[in-house]
Simulated assay, not measured.
Amino acid sequence: MLALSLASLAQVSAAPVAEALQRPAVQVKAPQRAALLSAAMAGNRIVAVGERGIVALSDDAGRSWRQAPSPVSVTLTTVRFSSARQGVAVGHGGVVLTTQDAGASWQLRLDGKRLAALTLEAAKAADSAPETLREAERLVADGPDKPLLDVLVWDAQRLLAVGAYGLAVHSSDGGQTWQPWMSRLPNPKGLHWYVARRQGDTLLLAGEQGLLAFSDDGGQSFRALTSPYQGSWFAGELQTDGHIVLAGLRGQVWRSTDAGSGWSALTNPVPATVTAMSPAPGGGLLLASQSGALLHLEGERLRPLPTPPLTLPAGLLTLPDGRLLALGLAGLSTLSLPAP
């Protein structure tokens, strides 16, 4: 997600969002040129999502694109797939969409109005503290103006979507029913969640003002982590070796090798906000910054790559053939990465 967009989330008007929840996505001639924020592989198909509910599909490794219908015209922020056909996308207006056919069609499973109502119902049922009840009532009164910014998928049934103002909702039946998880997470100030990552039963959530939460039991419980940096985290990865890498404002990049107990700062030669991160095809991680630079992290070394500048990158996806798909305000571009 773009740092500039994240900084202005609080200014989104509820009325236009509510209207956009009732309209299908605008149809465009070249969806690959729209502002696109996230992409994922659905088998051999690439599925990308972004502004005005646009969903773009490619079945030839990104050489050509077509638009798939979407039931909403709010911006979609993240897309993930649990299998070659089953996936989920989240976005503004508290939207959650699911697909059973590799992104060819989408069903609306949740919106901000229903999310707020569920939160108020849960607060009343739990006989919550007065402040918690007031926050739930405020969420209803505000209308569906708050975006979901990331989503975890265990499989086609189990989903966890997180977003602005501490929003967190979980489904165990593919989005048919939802349970608010805000009370489960250590976020007393209701700060924005920007990043959600999972490896097995290990979950990591990261966000505004250094906000960090960690679970090693599949989300049954979370604990707050002491953040090494008090600025916002916009990108992160839980690596297969158990290491955590987080990046965000002013080019800050940090690594933990002990489940977040301790952190080491990585020297970044490009001190610009990191907006996207992805596993690199040959190992390590790729990071994109707001300056347009692409960097390769291998071990403790961050190395700028000699690639063309990216235009406000929002997402990265490594393709099966080793090329890199970059997404942002200028649409999609594919890059051939230099040899290590």
Rank of each mutant, 00 (worst) to 15 (best):
M1P: 11
A3Y: 03
L6Y: 01
L6G: 14
L9D: 13
V12P: 00
V12L: 14
S13H: 07
A15G: 03
V17M: 14
L21W: 05
R23H: 13
V26P: 00
V28Q: 04
L37T: 15
M41A: 13
G43E: 08
N44I: 00
R45T: 11
V47D: 04
V47Q: 06
V49D: 07
E51Q: 15
R52H: 12
R52Q: 13
V55P: 04
A56D: 04
A56R: 03
S58M: 04
S58V: 03
P69I: 11
P71D: 09
S73Q: 14
V74D: 09
L76P: 08
S83F: 03
Q86R: 14
V95E: 01
V95P: 02
V96Y: 08
T99R: 05
A102S: 12
A104K: 12
Q107F: 01
L108Y: 01
L108P: 05
G112I: 04
R114A: 11
R114C: 03
R114W: 00
A116M: 07
E121F: 00
A123M: 03
K124W: 01
K124G: 10
A126F: 01
S128R: 10
R134I: 00
R138H: 07
P144M: 05
D150Y: 06
L152R: 03
W154T: 13
R158E: 15
V162W: 08
G163H: 02
G163C: 08
Y165W: 12
V169C: 02
S172N: 12
G174C: 04
G175H: 06
S183H: 03
L185F: 01
P186Y: 08
N187Y: 01
P188T: 07
G190C: 10
A196Y: 03
R197S: 08
D201Q: 15
G210I: 06
G218S: 07
Q220F: 01
F222D: 09
R223Y: 02
Y229D: 10
Q230N: 12
Q230V: 13
S232A: 09
W233F: 15
G236Y: 06
D241Q: 02
V245D: 09
G251W: 12
R255N: 05
S256Y: 04
A259Q: 14
S261I: 11
S264L: 08
T267W: 00
P269G: 10
V270I: 15
A272H: 13
A272C: 00
M277W: 01
S278H: 11
G283P: 05
L285W: 11
L286K: 11
L287S: 09
A288W: 05
S289F: 00
L305K: 10
L305A: 02
T307R: 04
P313C: 10
T318R: 09
P320S: 08
D321I: 02
R323V: 02
A326Y: 06
A330G: 09
G331K: 05
L332Q: 12
T334I: 14
T334N: 01
L337C: 09
A339M: 06
